[in-house]
Structure formats: structure tokens, C-alpha cells
Simulated assay, not measured.
Amino acid sequence: MDFDFSDDQQQLRDAVRKWVDKGYTFERHNAIVAAGGFDRAAYTELAELGLAGLYVSEDDGGLGMGPIEGMVVMEELGRGIVLEPLGQTLIASGLLGGYAPAELKAAWLPRVASGEVLVVLAHQERKARYRLDLCATTAVQAGQGWTLTGTKNVVPAADHADAFIVPAMAGGKMGLFLVERTASGVSTHGHATQDGGRAGDLTLKDAPARLITTDGLTALEHGVDIGIAAACAEGVGVMDKTVAITVEYMNTRKQFGVAIATFQALRHRVADMKMQLELARSMSYYASLKLNAPTAERRAAMARAKVQLGTAMRFIGQQAVQLHGGIGVTDEYIVSHYFKKLTQLEMTYGDTLHHLGEVSARMQDTAGVFA
């Protein structure tokens, strides 16, 4: 199988990498963290590169690209630990483009593609943990529209998003709805996240909403799988840069008059980090390639990928801090921020233990390897 990237994909990677290297320096990252964890100007710059329209069809003003291009972009954003949630835009684009009625697509997708609006998925509830089929938020039909009541937690950029895609129960079945932040009955409470980004709680009280689809669970699973694939790719980028920073440090840090990179035991640890990185990269490719597969196959693939990525992210983050010594855990030094990002990504859309259970539940006679 040919895993080479096309010229267009490589050019896309180069463009995003140049922006990260020049436009999203560690100093700018720290300034955004200090200012609250989200910068609309930075998100607008991503949109100007066309990245907000990556999954939006050309008819709706986007680039009409697919999962491989999304993976390429998220890897490069991971290398720069970019805080602005482009992965959420990919989810919103996929859900609106794949499930929303034509009128809703026409009203929102061009604005999503241009970066005019940020739409995020608000699906997590405290009692549900990582389960997608548990939902306490309710939807009631009101004339031609709907009203929603409930609370969603850890919503990305909750107090900066322009609209939310919200699952809610209507007559015992889950539907998926679009809620504008400026609508009546909508309130948000923002907070910082472990990696310095922005999230918050979304509270809805008889908030007016637009129906995206009545097959909410199917759509939600698809949206979360887009998010998992994006998080896996982002994690690969974070790990790739973490390994590079660690190797650079070991080549300059001296003990007993020689660089610590010459110590055999430490070289072996770096080799183990590199092995985990390549295992993670291959599973990220696998996840992206399976995004358009049938539901059961896609869901199983995402769980497998997330298990490997979670294992690799935890190992590489811990080893990087260990190899840096005390400086590795200080906020002033860059590697600590990469470690925090890896820690958060490991828990995003379900931690390793959760997805290990998902893999186990989907095992067939072949133990899940070829099924």
C-alpha cells in the first residue's frame, strides 16, 4: 500500500508548518494562555489559510478535502501545541455537511468555512463520563422549532464559540441540535484547561434550537470519531516535537564533561520513545483511513487507535520529563507544556482504559485483529 502523500497534501503540510513556526511561537502560545487560552485572531489566521473550510464542500465555500488532509493539518498544529480548537471545526463541518437539512447547511457552512463563526460540539455530561448513549439534556418541540434544557460540561472554547452542536433526548430518542450562543436561555461559564486552552460549561434553559437530525446517536458517534482521528493526529505532532526537543536537549546538556546523549542507557530510552512515536503514527494513519468506513468498522478502528495513542502519549511525555530532569516540569521550559498537552489528549474523547474496554467489547473470533 502506498502511504506517500500527494503533492497537494505535502504543500498543505508545508503551509501549516510555516505558519506554526513563524506565526505561533512559544512566546505567542504563552501569551494566549495568559490571556485566557483562546485567541480569535489566531483562529482567524487559521481560517485565512483555508483550514476552517477543510471539510466543507466547495459548493459551500470550503476546500472539500478529506480525512488525510485533516490528519496532515492536525499533526502540524500539534507540533506547535496550537490552542485554538480547529478539530472542533472539523467535527462541526462533518456533522453539518453530513446530517443537517439543506437550509441549515446553507446558513452555517459558508460562515464556518470562512472562519466567521466557531461551532463546537457540546456533548459531555458529568454522569455520562465517556459514554455517548447517556444523555440527560432534553428537547421539546415548540411550534416549528425546539427548546433544549440541560447542562454540558468541558465544552471546548465554550465562552468564545458562536454556536453549539448539542445532543438531546426527544421522546426517548436522541436528536442532534444547533444552538446559538446568543439565544435566550443560553449561558456559559468558561475555565482554563490543563494544557492552557479554554473550555467551559454550557447551561441551557428552554433554549431555542434548530434540529440537525433525529438520528442523533449515529451522528454523534460519527462526530466523536472525527474528533478522535483529529486528536490522534494532533498527538502525533505533539509527540514528534517532544522527541525532537528532548534529543536537542540531550545533545547540549553535559555531565562529566560529555553530552548526556552519549550515555547508552539514555539512548535506549530515546529509542523506546521513537518506537512508541512510530507505532502511534501508524495507528493515526489507520484511524484517518477508516473515517469513511461503515459505522461498526469505523468505531472499532477509532478505539484501537486511541488505545495505542494513549499508551504512546503517556510514555513519551513521562520519558521526556525524566530525561530533562527538574527543568522538565517548569512552566518556563517548553517541554512541560508538551507534556501537559499529551496528558490532556490522552483523556480526550475517552481515555486509554475506556477505549481498551471498547476494543475488548468489539472483539470477534479473531480477537479483534482482523475482524
Rank of each mutant, 00 (worst) to 15 (best):
M1C: 03
M1K: 12
D7P: 00
L12A: 10
R17A: 15
V20E: 04
F26Q: 14
F26T: 13
E27P: 00
G36I: 05
D39F: 07
Y43W: 05
A47E: 01
A47H: 02
A47T: 03
E48D: 15
L51W: 14
V56E: 13
V56G: 09
G61A: 02
G64F: 10
G66Y: 14
P67V: 05
L77R: 09
I81T: 13
I81K: 01
I81L: 04
E84H: 10
G87C: 13
Q88S: 11
T89P: 01
A92E: 00
A92R: 05
G94M: 12
G94T: 09
Y99W: 15
A100P: 05
E103G: 02
W108Q: 10
R111S: 13
V112L: 15
V117N: 00
L121W: 07
L121D: 11
R126E: 13
K127M: 06
Y130Q: 10
L132A: 09
D133P: 03
Q141V: 00
T149R: 11
T149D: 07
V154G: 01
V155H: 04
V155T: 13
D159G: 13
A161H: 07
A161W: 06
G172H: 11
K173P: 00
F177D: 01
V179R: 01
V179L: 01
R181T: 15
S184E: 15
G185E: 05
T188E: 06
H191F: 09
G196R: 03
G196C: 07
G196S: 07
L204W: 04
L211V: 09
T213H: 03
G216Y: 00
L217T: 03
H222D: 14
A230D: 05
E234W: 05
V236Q: 08
E248M: 00
N251A: 15
Q255Y: 11
V258E: 14
A261I: 14
T262C: 07
F263W: 12
R267Q: 15
R269D: 08
R269M: 10
L277C: 10
S288E: 09
L289Q: 05
N292Y: 01
R299I: 04
R299P: 00
A301M: 10
V307H: 06
Q308W: 09
T311N: 04
F315G: 02
G317K: 08
Q319I: 02
V321W: 06
H324L: 13
H324C: 12
I327E: 12
V329I: 10
Y333W: 12
V335A: 01
K340L: 04
K340V: 03
L342S: 08
T343I: 01
Q344P: 00
Q344F: 06
Y349R: 10
E358Y: 03
Q364S: 11
T366F: 00
F370Q: 10
